[in-house]
C-alpha cells in the first residue's frame, strides 16, 4: 500500500515538475525583451555571453562581488547538492556507471556541505536584520524543507541505515512501472515525501531561479546595440518611422 501511494505520488510529482518547468520556461522564452538592457560592462559576442552565464551558474560571479558570506554558503549548498544528486543516480541505474561509483565517496560527505550551507544561509536569514526584513514564511519553509531532505538523507547514511537493497528494487521498479515494496522506514518515507513536496513546489516558487537566470536580460544579452538593430514584435511593428 505504502509503496503504491508513494509511487503514484512520485509519478505525479515528476509530471508536475517537468510540465511546470517547461511551461514556465516557455513563458519566459515567449515574452519579448524589447530593449537592450545588459548590465554593463557586458560581452560583445554571444560566446562571451555564454561564458558570462557559465560563470554566473558555476562560480556565482555576481554574488561573489556582493557578499562573501552568502557566496560561501551558497557554494557549499549548491555544489553539495549537485554531488548528492549525482550520487543518487546509483539508485536508478544498474549496473552503476563507473563515474557514479567514483564520486560516491565525495557524494556522501557532500551531504554535510549541503546542510552546512543551508544552515549558514538560514542563520543569516534569522540574524542579519536586513535579510530578516525581506524574508517571508515561504523563505524559511523552503530552507526547512531542504534541510529536512538533507538531514534525513544524512541520518540514513550515517545513523540508522535503511534497507538500501530493497530501496533500490523499489526505485528501479519505478523506472519500469513495476511497483516493488518500499521499506517502511519512517526516516526514508519522510525523506521521500519531502523530496516529492520539493518537486511539486518547484515550478510555483522561487526555485525557478535555476532555469530563470538564463532568461535574465541583464545577463543574457549581447552588448551590440549600435552594431545590430535589436527588433522585437510589439515594439517594432512600425520600424523606424511613426
Amino acid at each position: 500500500m505504502l509503496s503504491i501511494v508513494l509511487a503514484v505520488m512520485f509519478y505525479a510529482a515528476t509530471l508536475v515538475l517537468l510540465l511546470g518547468i517547461a511551461y514556465r520556461v516557455s513563458v519566459y522564452a515567449r515574452t519579448p525583451a524589447p530593449l537592450k538592457i545588459p548590465t554593463m560592462p557586458a560581452p560583445t559576442t554571444s560566446g562571451g555571453v555564454a561564458m558570462r552565464l557559465l560563470r554566473e551558474v558555476t562560480i556565482f560571479e555576481s554574488l561573489f562581488k556582493s557578499n562573501k558570506w552568502i557566496w560561501i554558503f551558497a557554494i557549499l549548498f549548491h555544489f553539495g547538492m549537485l554531488l548528492v544528486l549525482l550520487r543518487h543516480i546509483r539508485y536508478f541505474n544498474e549496473p552503476v556507471w563507473v563515474w557514479v561509483q567514483l564520486i560516491q565517496p565525495f557524494g556522501t560527505y557532500a551531504g554535510f556541505a549541503m546542510l552546512i550551507g543551508l544552515l549558514g544561509l538560514w542563520v543569516r536569514r534569522v540574524f542579519v536584520e536586513r535579510i530578516r526584513y525581506i524574508s517571508g514564511p515561504s523563505d524559511h519553509l523552503m530552507l526547512a524543507l531542504l534541510s529536512l531532505i538533507a538531514g534525513t538523507g544524512l541520518i540514513m547514511k550515517f545513523v540508522v541505515h535503511t534497507d538500501i537493497v530493497a530501496l533500490k528494487t523499489f526505485t528501479l521498479g519505478l523506472l519500469r512501472f513495476d511497483i516493488q515494496p518500499l521499506p517502511a522506514d519512517p526516516v526514508l518515507v519522510t525523506h521521500l515525501l519531502a523530496v516529492i513536496l520539493l518537486m511539486l513546489v518547484f515550478p510555483v516558487s522561487k526555485l525557478l531561479h535555476a532555469p530563470g537566470v538564463f532568461f535574465s536580460p541583464s545577463r543574457n544579452q549581447v552588448d551590440n546595440s549600435r552594431e545590430k538593430r535589436h527588433v522585437t514584435a510589439w515594439a517594432n511593428n512600425n520600424a523606424g518611422q511613426e
Binding site: R24, P32, A33, L63, N67, V128, K206, H209, G212
Partner: peptide
C-alpha cells in the same frame, strides 16, 4: 507589462531573497 517585458516577468519570479543587494 508582464507580457511585454521579459525582464519584469523573470525578475518577479526568480528573486530568492538572498539579500545580496540589500546594502547596495
Amino acid at each position: 507589462l508582464l507580457k511585454k517585458y521579459r525582464s519584469l516577468k523573470v525578475y518577479m519570479d526568480i528573486c530568492v531573497k538572498c539579500g545580496a543587494c540589500t546594502d547596495k
